[in-house]
Amino acid sequence: MKTWFITGASRGFGSLFVKEAIERGDNVVATARDPKAILDRFGERPNLLAVKLDVTDEEQAKDAVAQAVSRFGRIDVVVNNAGFGVIGAIEEISGKEVEAVYRTNVFGLLAVTRAVLPQLRRQRAGHILNVSSIGGYRSWAAWGVYASTKFAVEAISEALAMELKPLGINVTIVEPGYFRTDFLDAQSLTTTESTIVDYAETVGEIRKLAVSLNHNQPGNPALLAKALLTIVDAPNPPLRIPFGSDTVAAIEAKHQQVSAELESWRALSVSTDFAASQS
């Protein structure tokens, strides 16, 4: 039996992660800004603790961890799932809009991670899963600021994995593509207040695509939630796990593009070293 600590657990992937974990008999600490939504869905259960948590509030994060340990004695799996998206051209997105998405997607993840690490270090065991996105591996027009938050999540996770491996704690980056959740709904994806006509052929088309894809995405979120159980049960879990054929294809395409560009410019790239006789 494992004890899970899941952020953003009231809907979307977070709610599905809760479902899979409690139904197999694990303990779950499900956190959300409105924990009542969790209880309304799952009811009172001995292996479920619904806790109020705004991930941008560090004191709330520490208190949520304390409640988790008080109730279940330990924490085995941390799922940093809380987050939201913003769509718009780099020029269109205001500083206020940028700060809001970073506050949750990056600073919130850091706050929860810092709050839970003392417990995991005491245990010398645990597994942190940071929910990124295909946008954390490859950016795209209209998604630049959102993708930048997920690039940050991946950089943080890579370093964290190195720091925690000697302590017996694993880190995995979860990279979903387009899954049929409510991510493209207004409650999870904001659009910029400002729009600029010059970006109609790029960003404007992506906005239209987001509307047409909403609830028509190719990925099955229930299957991703089940797959997550395989990851947390693995004796040697991966650092990075993409989910969805669209994600795998996008990663492969980026690898090919980077490899081709590197080869094309290799001579100039390596020409900046000191010569052996000068070093």
Rank of each mutant, 00 (worst) to 15 (best):
F72K: 14
G73W: 09
G73R: 10
G73F: 03
R74K: 14
I75S: 08
V77E: 01
V78C: 14
V79S: 00
V79C: 10
N80V: 02
N80H: 11
N81C: 12
A82T: 14
A82Y: 07
G83Q: 01
F84V: 10
F84L: 12
G85R: 02
I87T: 04
I87A: 15
G88W: 01
A89T: 00
A89F: 00
A89H: 08
I90E: 03
I90S: 14
I90C: 09
E91S: 11
E92F: 04
E92P: 08
E92A: 13
S94E: 02
G95M: 08
G95Q: 03
K96I: 00
E97T: 01
V98Y: 01
V98R: 01
E99P: 06
E99T: 01
A100I: 03
A100N: 00
V101C: 01
V101P: 01
V101M: 09
V101A: 00
Y102D: 02
R103I: 03
R103G: 13
T104R: 11
N105W: 10
N105Y: 04
N105F: 00
V106P: 02
V106H: 07
V106N: 12
F107E: 02
F107H: 05
F107K: 04
L109R: 00
L109V: 09
A111P: 06
A111T: 05
A111C: 08
T113Y: 04
A115F: 12
A115G: 03
L117Y: 03
Q119C: 01
L120T: 04
L120P: 05
Q123G: 03
A125P: 01
G126S: 09
H127F: 07
H127T: 06
I128Y: 05
L129C: 11
L129F: 06
N130L: 14
N130G: 06
V131Q: 07
S133W: 00
S133P: 15
S133N: 05
S133Q: 10
I134G: 13
G135L: 07
G135W: 07
G136I: 15
G136D: 09
Y137F: 10
Y137N: 12
Y137W: 12
S139R: 10
W140A: 12
W140C: 07
W140K: 15
A141R: 06
W143A: 12
G144S: 15
G144P: 04
G144F: 04
V145Q: 05
Y146G: 03
Y146P: 01
Y146C: 10
A147Q: 11
A147V: 05
S148C: 11
S148K: 08
F151L: 02
F151P: 09
A152E: 11
A152D: 03
A152Y: 08
V153Y: 00
E154P: 08
E154H: 13
I156D: 00
S157D: 09
S157K: 15
S157Q: 06
S157W: 06
E158I: 05
A159D: 14
E163R: 04
E163G: 09
E163W: 07
L164E: 09
L164N: 09
L164F: 14
L164T: 08
K165Y: 02
P166V: 01
P166E: 02
P166M: 03
G168Y: 11
G168W: 10
N170S: 14
N170Q: 14
V171A: 03
V171S: 14
T172R: 15
T172H: 11
I173C: 09
E175Y: 11
E175I: 06
P176N: 07
F179Q: 07
R180Q: 15
R180Y: 07
T181M: 14
D182C: 13
D182M: 02
F183A: 14
